[in-house]
């Protein structure tokens, strides 16, 4: 493979006066597991949201699978894509939110089949069958007919992962998937994510679970004040960070 799956080039994003992303550039290769770490407010969530186009970048560009996201270049200028087109681009990414965001009026199974049936127009039976396989994969086959309010946080997050996987994305984005969970429920979600990583899925994970990063990540990226301070193989960035800011962040969280 000669081209990264995700190429982020000089992406900036301001919220009013505040610069949330400052000329961020990054490559993510197919099959890579990349963990984003950094202090609160350093722009990790914003970066993921830009890749999923829940937030629009101000300048710079993100290419996913060779396709420029959100805009089209023509005559030396950029033109915003239609909402329809953007929705289609979003299908290549799956997003797992910190607060799960399951649909409360749908059962676990219906949460998973909603996208395949409504968006991808797949048959209800196929979607159900696949959803059951996904539920089994995240260890929740018995909870297919439970509503989110009847599930624990860890179970909800595993359903949310299955819901994202049901769209068969090329890239999975995780925004602190375990930080809203009680400590004893973190493990079951991380187990599912490890299995996913082993299966070869390309993943970008914002996390404070450095143990997970050390074990699963190929690459660790440390962000501060909207910029990438240091990135490299997990063992290097976590084991012997070169930058002073990374060192002080790591010594503070451990």
């Amino acid at each position: 493979m000669t081209q990264p799956l995700v190429a982020i080039r000089s992406v900036s994003k301001n919220f009013g006066e505040f610069q949330a992303l400052n000329h961020v550039s990054l490559d993510v290769w197919a099959g890579e597991v990349l963990c984003l770490i950094g202090a609160s407010g350093s722009g990790k969530t914003t970066l993921l949201r830009c890749i999923n186009q829940l937030t629009q970048v101000d300048s710079g560009g993100i290419w996913l699978d060779g396709e420029l996201l959100g805009v089209r270049e023509e005559g030396g200028r950029l033109h915003r894509l239609t909402e329809r087109h953007i929705a289609r681009q979003r299908l290549k990414t799956g997003m797992v939110f910190q607060r799960f965001n399951l649909f409360p009026h749908r059962t676990a199974l219906e949460n998973i089949t909603e996208g395949p049936v409504q968006v991808q127009r797949r048959s209800r039976e196929d979607a159900r069958e696949e959803a059951m396989e996904l539920l089994a994969r995240v260890g929740l086959a018995a909870k297919a007919d439970a509503y989110p309010s009847q599930l624990s946080g860890g179970q909800q997050q595993r359903v949310a992962i299955a819901r994202a996987l049901a769209m068969k994305p090329m890239l999975m984005l995780f925004d602190e998937p375990t930080s809203a969970l009680d400590p004893e429920l973190v493990g079951e979600v991380l187990t599912v994510m490890k299995e996913l990583a082993r299966s070869g899925m390309t993943m970008m994970v914002v996390t404070h679970e450095l143990g997970f990063a050390r074990e699963v990540a190929d690459t660790v990226v440390y962000m501060d004040h909207g910029a990438i301070v240091e990135s490299g193989p997990a063992a290097e960035v976590l084991g012997k960070p070169r930058e002073v800011r990374t060192q002080s962040f790591l010594s503070a969280v451990i």
Binding site: L54, A87, R90, L91, T93, N101, G115, Q118, Q120, R163
Partner: peptide
């Protein structure tokens, strides 16, 4: 978050 989750599955 509900709207964003819906967008994230391509709606």
């Amino acid at each position: 978050g509900q709207y964003e989750a819906a967008q994230a599955i391509g709606m």
